[in-house]
Design a protein around this nucleic acid. Structure first.
Length: 427
DNA sequence: TCTGGGGTCCTAGGACCC
DNA sequence: TCTGGGGTCCTAGGACCC
């Protein structure tokens, strides 16, 4: 296993994970749903993606299609919310800011969780430190969290999982590790998904302890280097480094399911152009340019009565760019190539890839000339849209009707950037 | 009727070169 | 009839994550 780098230094890593994050965000601004069963739905009100403890206890599963639990929801008076990512993103930034007061080394792993290096904290004091993290985040942001602490990222994930399950708040996985791992199902291990679970079960590895005790060569042969890293980490040998500095994204995807089926090429075009505008704006905000653009469309994979069609087309851009007009031109070309008449489309999207810093684009003599021409226009559009709201300036092809737009029937309409939605206190 | 969206990393295999 | 071998680079697709 010489190919896997690891250190033998004694680490302490905490994983802080917000409890039912989206639900907790909605609860912040709505005291009435504090003790109630609450769920938050994915885009298009499609699936349940966040559940309060009470909703979990009712048997509502993560990722379950909303229409399948509608009856249950009605019967038990579950509060239902469409997702509000602007709000969750804002609260997330506040939580992360608090976490950074506890350690110089914080990896923001997702919208609702972060790894924190606590190696500098004494072993005896680390559990108390974890409790302090919980209470400060709760006090300063109102968001409840669970904290798992262990010697590797994978083990801190295990500890966090246990903390949530046992409602313990903080778990420091330091003693009786093997006993804990024996009760930890293999499919719950970080990095073990559906396929790997199947493979491990077939080979009589059914819990984390089993995986910890098989040979590295065997794991690597049967899976890949990531599988072997997971096994090593379960042994307490750190193989997955903390990623402190936020690297810029390498791809940028914007896609949506439609609120209703779409057959018409013009409507598909409108949606693709709208996605294109959003993606271009995103990468410009990071000062990036794209090398290629991919357009994809598909019909519903769940509709058994109709033939499934899914296709995508990637275009290499002659000159990498973040220019909306240029990107749209290529997107429309790609869409026309893959569009087939007669299908009821369910989703469309675009992916900008091969992203790099705009100022690195120097291999082409023409580049500065062409880029400058449009840079000012793009800047003006971005500025206006930030100041006066999304879509203040758009382009005509993006359409105005947008009959294909997604459903959002349960929005709380909370906007933390707007005074209108601040809670009112009546005295 | 109604099933999300946005990422990362790894690997196999093709293209290409000498 | 007989059609090298080894290296690099790139990409599509798969698996995983939240």
């Amino acid at each position: 296993m010489s190919s896997i780098k690891y250190t033998t230094k004694k680490n302490r890593i905490a994983l802080v994970d917000c409890n039912s994050f989206y639900v907790s965000c909605e609860r912040l601004f709505n005291p009435k749903i504090q003790k109630k069963a609450v769920v938050v739905l994915s885009n298009n009100d499609g699936c349940v993606i966040s559940r309060s403890r009470e909703a979990k206890d009712l048997g509502i599963k993560m990722g379950e299609p909303y229409f399948k639990v509608k009856e249950l929801v009605k019967k038990n008076k579950v509060e239902v919310y469409s997702s509000n990512y602007a709000l969750y993103g804002d609260i997330s930034r506040r939580v992360m800011k608090v976490l950074k007061t506890f350690s110089p080394k914080v990896e923001i792993y997702s919208i609702d969780e972060a790894f924190i290096d606590l190696s500098f904290i004494d072993e005896k004091g680390v559990e108390d430190y974890g409790r302090e993290i919980r209470s400060r985040v709760l006090k300063w942001t109102g968001i409840p969290t669970s904290v798992g602490i262990a010697s590797t990222k994978t083990l801190s994930k295990v500890a966090n999982h246990i903390a949530k399950k046992e409602k313990a708040g903080v778990i420091y996985l330091n003693t009786n590790i093997d006993e804990r791992l024996k009760k930890f199902q293999i499919e719950d291990v970080w990095g073990v998904g559906k396929q790997l679970s199947k493979f491990y079960h077939k080979n009589n590895i059914s819990n984390a302890y089993d995986l910890k005790n098989v040979s590295n060569t065997w794991v690597k042969k049967g899976t890949n280097v990531l599988g072997a890293k997971t096994a090593m980490e379960l042994r307490g040998i750190p193989c997955i480094d903390l990623q402190i500095d936020q690297e810029k994204r390498k791809n940028c995807c914007v896609s949506r399911s439609f609120g209703r089926k779409v057959k018409d090429l013009n409507e598909l075009e409108e949606s693709v152009i709208t996605h294109c505008l959003n993606a271009a704006e995103k990468i410009r905000a990071d000062d990036q340019i794209a090398k290629t653009i991919t357009v994809f469309i598909r019909t519903s994979p769940f509709d058994k009565n109709r033939r499934y069609y899914s296709n995508s087309k990637t275009i290499d851009l002659a000159i990498p760019t973040s220019n909306s007009i240029e990107l749209i031109k290529n997107a429309v070309k790609a869409l026309t190539d893959i569009y087939k008449y007669g299908y009821a489309y369910q989703k469309a999207g675009i992916i900008l890839s091969g992203l790099k810093d705009a100022n690195q684009n120097d291999q082409n003599l023409l580049t500065p000339l062409l880029e400058n021409k449009s840079k000012k226009l793009m800047k003006a559009i971005d500025y206006t849209n930030t100041k006066y709201g999304r879509y203040a300036i758009s382009i005509a092809q993006a359409g105005l009707s947008k009959g294909w737009k997604m459903r959002r029937e349960h929005s709380s309409k909370i906007d933390t950037a707007s005074f209108d939605s601040l809670p009112k206190i009546v005295v």
